[in-house]
Write a protein that binds this DNA or RNA. Sequence first.
DNA 1: TATCGTCGAATTGTGGAACAATCTAGCACG
DNA 2: CGTGCTAGATTGTTCCACAATTCGACGATA
Lengths: 212, 212
Amino acid sequence: MVDAAADALRQMVLDGTLEPGSRLRETDFSKRLGIARHTFRAATQILINEGLLRRSPNRGVQLAVLDGDDIVDIFRLREALEVEAIRLVITGKKEIPEAEDAVEQFNALDDEASWRTVVDLDMSFHRAVIDAAASERINRAYAGVQSEILLCMAQLRPHYDRPAEVAAEHRELLEAIEAGDLKVTEDLFRKHLGDATENLTNALEAREEVTA
Amino acid sequence: MVDAAADALRQMVLDGTLEPGSRLRETDFSKRLGIARHTFRAATQILINEGLLRRSPNRGVQLAVLDGDDIVDIFRLREALEVEAIRLVITGKKEIPEAEDAVEQFNALDDEASWRTVVDLDMSFHRAVIDAAASERINRAYAGVQSEILLCMAQLRPHYDRPAEVAAEHRELLEAIEAGDLKVTEDLFRKHLGDATENLTNALEAREEVTA
DNA sequence: TATCGTCGAATTGTGGAACAATCTAGCACG
DNA sequence: CGTGCTAGATTGTTCCACAATTCGACGATA
């Protein structure tokens, strides 16, 4: 039940239903979710651990607001995890059928594909690589960054290249993994993630200017 | 207050006061710690996120018991984080005075140094490397693995080499970082951590045989 | 005697009310 | 116009209650 509440909250957060930085009053939300205050607090604790909410003493929880440093930092951790994952995949000669599926679906997209579709495929590609590494703890850690990335996405709407380009890039990543050259693949992933960081950072700056 | 309770619990867990796998009954512990049951539950949630406790539905929380796969997995994540940290340190040309301190203290140890002292220095050396990377999220993730490593240490008492050897190995790591060759340093760290994994795994097997 | 089912106590999960401590906003006052 | 105060709102924590579930002991049956 606390898990269900956490899911509902996460949904709200990532949907954009909740304003970035908005405060989540306990009585308010517990009533709205039909749960007790304690249960709500337990649910928020889960999202706090995921980095989606922040708690300040005696001031309750707020929706996290991410600045440029946060984005860079999120991608630092993401890079650490993904690079280790591809190392494990390559040295362990593991198969990653889900990543292949994702690439195929990427190929099937036309230029009219919705932003959301592209993001989802992107996510599932990278998730597949992490899953293939088959490390429980790397997986858990990645779940955290993934939530934060989704939060970024919900708050910013970064510019995305044409689906075909995104597809090509991911196909290249997959082929590198399957070719089995660790160094080449690693560099490719770092570049891919670096580009994404830049993309998001730019989107953030653009929004700053608007709201400023 | 929930933080204080979590600290007290963590202390108990890492002290070895609590048997591995033992159950933490809510009424029992909340009375013993002088807190309410809800507060205790909140405190346990923190340790669950650190990987020190586990909760099974309707069966409460138990002290985590780590098997060989867990140890390997913990060190997979640890490797990912430390390797990324040294990358950040080297490319950012950052100083790590705390690591230098640790190495100096290592050098000052004689062969009679307690196991605990060696472990503490080892920990603070690696912690220093992570800190130097100055990534909030890598730091947080590392805090989790560090707790789990301490749990390993509390449950097993792995064989440790003579302090002088441990000192030499860490001095080598530090010098590699300062020399600034990423690849060499990375390989050295991977080897260092791989040895530690083996060390702990052996200790685990040894204990398995005793208890069997 | 061994196995199985049943019942009861213990424990967890959740709800609700209460209360001190703290924060916040509005208002009076200098 | 700034400052301090008061009152209400909000959080952090406690205690109590109760349904649901688990666990263990006990007894019935083959």
